[in-house]
Design a protein around this nucleic acid. Structure first.
Length: 476
DNA sequence: ATGTCC
C-alpha cells in the first residue's frame, strides 16, 4: 500500500480522511512494514465500506487485513439502524461464525512428545477433515432446526460436551434471535451430514504447547502455564454458512437497488437493517452462528474421546470460544451516547475488555481471551481484551496471520508433501487429506503472525498473554 | 471459506 495515501496518526494508526462518497474515515492499525506490504485492495475496500449508509465512526482494518469479498478480511464496521444503517453478507463473510476455541489439557509437553504421532492419527480419524467432509451425525429436518436455534446448548443436550463448556463460549453457546425458517432447505441439506467436521482451507485442529508467557497475572487467570499443552479448534459453519452467504448476497444485491443504495462495489451488497431482507439475513446468520458453535462443541467432544484413548490423564477444559466472522448487536458509545450498533467483524475477533458484562465472570477482571490462530506450522497467540479497544475499533482485534499470497500462488511455490516433511523435522506432525491444501496453507503464504500480534497490542486492540507453538496439526 | 464452476 502506498503510504502517501494515508495520514499517520501515531506509530500504529493510519487514517484516510473522508473523500468522494465516504461518510466516515477509514482507519488502519498496523506498523509501517505491515502497511507497506498490505494489498492496495485493503485501502480500496476499507474506503468503500466507509461509503455505506448508516456507518458510524470509521471503517477499520486490523493489522492482518487482506483482500476479501467486498469487505476486507480483517475489517470492522458498525452501523446504526436509526441512521439507515445496513447489514451486509459480505461484511460477515462466507464462513459465518468461523472462530477459534482453545482448551487446556492439564498435560505438559513431555507427556505428548512420545505419543504425538499416535495422537495425530487418532485425532485425524476421529475428527473428519477436508472439503466436503462428513461425520457420523445425521440431522433430520426437526433436529436441524433445533440445532440452528440451540447452538452449543443443543449439542450439549445431545451429549456432546460438559455443562461448564457453555459458560466459556461466546453467547453461552447459543446465539439468540436465530430464525431457522429463514435458512433455505438447500443450506440445511448441505449441512445434514457435516456436523462435527473441520472443513478445509485454513481450518485446523491443533495440539499446541505454551512457549512464552507475556502477562503472568492474566495467564494465571486463564489457566495457561509455560510448557503446558493446549488444544485449539479453528472452524466454522461449513456448507450451511456458505450457502446462507451465497443466497443472501444475491438477495441483498436486489434489495440494495430497491432501497436506492448506491454501491461502490457490487460485492458490498447490503440491505437496511430494518428491512425484510435485512431482518431475514440476521435471523439466518444467527442460525449460522449457532451451527458453528454446535460444530465446535461436537468437535470438542470428539477430541476428548481421542485424547482419552491416547492420554487418559488429559482433562480438556474449555478456556474460551470466540468467533471472528459475525455481525452482532452491541452497545457502543458514539458522541457521548451509548447506542445499539450492528458491528460487522469479518476476520476480526471480538475483544471485550475488563468489566464488560459479556465476559465470563472468571475473566471479568482481566478481559476476554482473544484467540489468534497462526498459519500451519507457526505460532498462535492468546491475547486479552482491553478497554482501549472499545474506542479504537468497537472492541475488536486481529484474527490470525492473514494471507500474504493467493492460494494459487502458494501452490506454485510449495509442495504439500515436502512441507509436511520439513515440519516433521521441526517436531511438528501434520495430518491432512489434501497435500494441495497443505501447499495452499504454507506458512510462507501468510504474514508474520508475531508482527501482526505485536501491532495489535501496540495499537491497543488487545494485550499479549501467551504464545503457542504447534506439536500436532490436523489440517482440513 | 465452499459439493474449490449449475
Amino acid at each position: 500500500m502506498d503510504l502517501n495515501l494515508l495520514t499517520r496518526e501515531d506509530e500504529f494508526t493510519w487514517r484516510v480522511e473522508p473523500h468522494g462518497d465516504m461518510r466516515v474515515p477509514a482507519v488502519l492499525y498496523a506498523d509501517e512494514a505491515l502497511i507497506r506490504d498490505m494489498d492496495h485492495k485493503v485501502y480500496e475496500q476499507a474506503c468503500n465500506v466507509a461509503m455505506l449508509p448508516g456507518i458510524v465512526k470509521a471503517s477499520y482494518a486490523m493489522p492482518d487485513a487482506h483482500w476479501g469479498y467486498g469487505f476486507p478480511i480483517g475489517g470492522v464496521a458498525a452501523f446504526d439502524p436509526k441512521q439507515g444503517g445496513v447489514v451486509s453478507a459480505g461484511g460477515v463473510g462466507f464462513d459465518i461464525s468461523c472462530g477459534v476455541r482453545t482448551l487446556t489439557t492439564g498435560l505438559r509437553r513431555e507427556d505428548v512428545e512420545t505419543v504425538k504421532s499416535e495422537l495425530a492419527k487418532i485425532l485425524y480419524y476421529t475428527v473428519p477433515a477436508g472439503v466436503g467432509s462428513t461425520g457420523k451425525i445425521h440431522l433430520d429436518d426437526r433436529e436441524m432446526d433445533a440445532m440452528l436455534a440451540g447452538g452449543a446448548q443443543w449439542a450439549l443436550e445431545r451429549g456432546y460436551g460438559r455443562t461448564e463448556d457453555l459458560e466459556r463460549t461466546e453467547e453461552h453457546g447459543r446465539m439468540p434471535g436465530a430464525r431457522p425458517e429463514q435458512v433455505s432447505p438447500h443450506a440445511k441439506k448441505r449441512q445434514r451430514d457435516e456436523m462435527g467436521t473441520l472443513g478445509s482451507g485454513n481450518h485446523y485442529l491443533e495440539v499446541q504447547h505454551v512457549t512464552e508467557i507475556y502477562d503472568t497475572g492474566i495467564a494465571a487467570v486463564y489457566g495457561i502455564r509455560p510448557g503446558s499443552i493446549v488444544l485449539s479448534i479453528h472452524c466454522g459453519s461449513r456448507g450451511l454458512g456458505h450457502q446462507i452467504g451465497t443466497e443472501f448476497l444475491k438477495r441483498m444485491a436486489l434489495a440494495a437497488g430497491q432501497y436506492g443504495i448506491t454501491l461502490p462495489d457490487r460485492e458490498l451488497a447490503c440491505a437496511p437493517i430494518e428491512s425484510p431482507v435485512g431482518e431475514a439475513y440476521l435471523g439466518a446468520m444467527r442460525a449460522g452462528i449457532n451451527c458453528a458453535l454446535a460444530n465446535r462443541q461436537i468437535i470438542t467432544h470428539l477430541a476428548r474421546q481421542a485424547f482419552a484413548k491416547v492420554l487418559p490423564p488429559a482433562d480438556l477444559r474449555l478456556l474460551y470460544d470466540v468467533s471472528h466472522n459475525t455481525c452482532k448487536v452491541e452497545e457502543h458509545e458514539i458522541d457521548g451516547q451509548t447506542r445499539p450498533l450492528f458491528v460487522h467483524r469479518k476476520g476480526a475477533t471480538r475483544a471485550f475488555g475488563p468489566g464488560h458484562a459479556e465476559v465470563p465472570p472468571a475473566f471479568r477482571e482481566v478481559g476476554q481471551p482473544v484467540l489468534i490462530g497462526g498459519s500451519m506450522g507457526t505460532a498462535s497467540y492468546i491475547l486479552a481484551g482491553t478497554n482501549e479497544s472499545e474506542r479504537r475499533a468497537f472492541s475488536s482485534a486481529c484474527h490470525g496471520a492473514g494471507r500474504a499470497m493467493s492460494r494459487h500462488a502458494a501452490t506454485r511455490q510449495w509442495k504439500g508433501g515436502r512441507l509436511v516433511n520439513e515440519l516433521a523435522e521441526r517436531g511438528i506432525v501434520i495430518r491432512s487429506p489434501s497435500m494441495r491444501g497443505v501447499a495452499e496453507e504454507a506458512p510462507g503464504a501468510y504474514k508474520d503472525v508475531s508482527a501482526v500480534v505485536d501491532a495489535a497490542q501496540q495499537a491497543g486492540l488487545a494485550r499479549k498473554v501467551a504464545r503457542l507453538e504447534p506439536v500436532v496439526c490436523i489440517k482440513g
